[in-house]
Design a protein around this nucleic acid. Structure first.
Lengths: 199, 199, 199, 199
DNA sequence: GATGAATGAGCGTTCATTCAT
DNA sequence: GATGAATGAACGCTCATTCAT
């Protein structure tokens, strides 16, 4: 029994992974709304019906994919946390670098995620998790800017976050043209430094 | 005759405005692709068919909505150009202020516009001139930062643009929570100033 | 009153005629099903609504147009009857000539009429009148072939009618290519002659 | 595996045949343009959506129906070619007999085909090869009449073709009333014979 | 008589979902 | 677990028809 169970689990995992991989790529390339279950099934090499053994429906599949992305982000950040041994500047710089690297590595995923953010209905379904992530990021930023001596760390954290998102959004929308590297350097120089009181 | 014509014109305008208003809200909240003509008609209090008396189709309706926004933006910018009489810092500050004011005034329009940016096909069909606008804005920024003495004005223009878009995106996505005013001030303080060489 | 009545009648007649003329041309060129009331109204230079002052609806307009055609055909034949003074051969020849001439004069109308013959629903509405016309034509043919001495005049009448319709159908379907004149002559030579018993 | 495949194949074929049968009847009686997918689905006892599992769309369904007819016609003609061993009169007679038999066997198909001939757009999209078939038939006729000694074989071929089409059209339009057999005999006697120079 | 804004049923088509096998 | 035939609601859109003016 245990053996057969294991084999089933493996098949299941294989099919699930193929589905999620295919769906992720199709959602990212064509958008969630423009991707049909048929397309996903075909790309994953399975039948339409099988999808419904694993997921309640299309939206549940989307949620699973987003969740995977969140988990990945989570683990990356916690890994990063441990690796960043320097002062708050270095940690900030590290976060920025990692964010850029991650978006460059998989811009389609981030494009999907951002485009979903503009659809209230979809967002409502995923909102709690997103909100948690957002607050965690802001919290981290606030703490770092506080350590750097800024009198208004929340505003600085928000502005940095916005700037990060803005640059990455522009990059995502024209990845071939955008001078990402110099803008990143400028962003780091502008934000990742100790508070300098006006003389 | 003129009377009858006037009556018809008024009917038309009333209906068109109701349609465009309803459509913009729905497009902004649910996305263009997830909003059906039926929904628009229902929200506007008219029948599906009537829409097609006024617009060629769904896409033409979107175009009409965007065009109105463009026209408004154009006129605002040209007005602004004349009003900004100070040095480049003041002009930059003014641009930032106007951008914020405009988005606060009509957040749904900007939400719609931003969400469309992530749907290449729709955007290209509907507003090829967006790219031109973008280049014009960047050009303006570059010129101003050059005047302010920055050695790398393009990067500064891009970063400011990204920061602006990032803040406004965050605001658009949660307009009730976002501390827009203080972040705006910080943004202005951070970007709208002469070049300060490192000592 | 009589004067005003007369003016109204004239206007009405004018509009009606413009409508029927426009509708006839559009029906003939594009088919009944592919012609919209809007198109007819536009072509006739009137409003959509006015049509419904004169006709119950689209189908009633079609019936009116067909009826006009029938009446015209009727009058042509009765005129012809009087004019044809020769023997039965000459009368037959005359009928054939007139039929060809009429179709050449207004092939679109005949194309419309023929295409309608294949739509049971439409035909049901016009059927009685058509049936009467058909029987009248057959009757005429039978009488003429009887006079020419044929032992089976009905079959000859039917065959001639079929041949006539067949040639004209082929002509209608490719009016530019079809060698109408020689085929007509051959048809006349083949059918419009006295009975020749086999030796 | 093979078993399941076979079951599915059978289901598909059953459904396809029901669809094509229903569609042909409706197309023939109401015209292609006046027959809706809903009607076809209802008549075939399936859902609207299922049609699109088997055919790209309405036009593809029409093509499939016509193609089946073409294939059948082709095979019949090639069979006939081999069977007709007599002189040109016998061949001509045979062609006429086969044409009549075929139309009697499946009048709805021929009604559909003829009605389509009057809708240029549909026909061109659906069966460009019809023109080729027509030329082939005319060519055959010309050759036979030449062999029979006629000085103007083209006109005779065209007239026979027209006569054939005319009779069959009349039959198709009122199959219950039309005295097909005697008219056919008369047609054969009239056309399928050697050239007889006028004395 | 004449207008055209407004309606709503229907079109061809798509696609997430169900279910018998 | 896996299949794909089958469903039906919804889509964008068309157009004959109605009616207040």
């Amino acid at each position: 029994m245990s053996k057969r169970q294991a084999r089933f689990d493996q098949l299941r995992e294989t099919s699930k992974e193929r589905i999620e991989q295919a769906a992720m790529e199709l959602f990212a390339h064509n958008g969630y709304g423009n991707t049909s279950i048929s397309q996903i099934a075909q790309a994953a090499g399975i039948s339409k019906g099988l999808m419904y053994n694993y997921y309640e429906g299309k939206e549940a599949l989307l949620k699973a994919i987003l969740q995977k992305g969140f988990d990945l982000g989570e683990s990356m950040i916690s890994e990063g946390r441990e690796m960043a041994t320097g002062g708050p500047e270095e940690v900030l710089r590290f976060i920025v670098e990692v964010s850029f690297a991650e978006v460059v590595r998989n811009p389609e995923y981030w494009k999907l995620l951002t485009s979903l953010a503009f659809q209230d209905e979809v967002m409502k379904a995923v909102a709690p998790e997103v909100e948690v992530q957002k607050q965690k990021h802001i919290g981290m930023g606030v703490e770092l800017f506080r350590q750097l001596g800024y009198p208004n760390p929340l505003e600085h954290a928000l502005l940095l976050g916005a700037c990060l998102d803005g640059v990455l959004m522009h990059y995502i929308l024209s990845p071939d043209d955008y001078p990402l590297e110099p803008v990143k350097q400028l962003l780091i120089n502008t934000f990742c430094k100790k508070f300098e009181p006006k003389s």
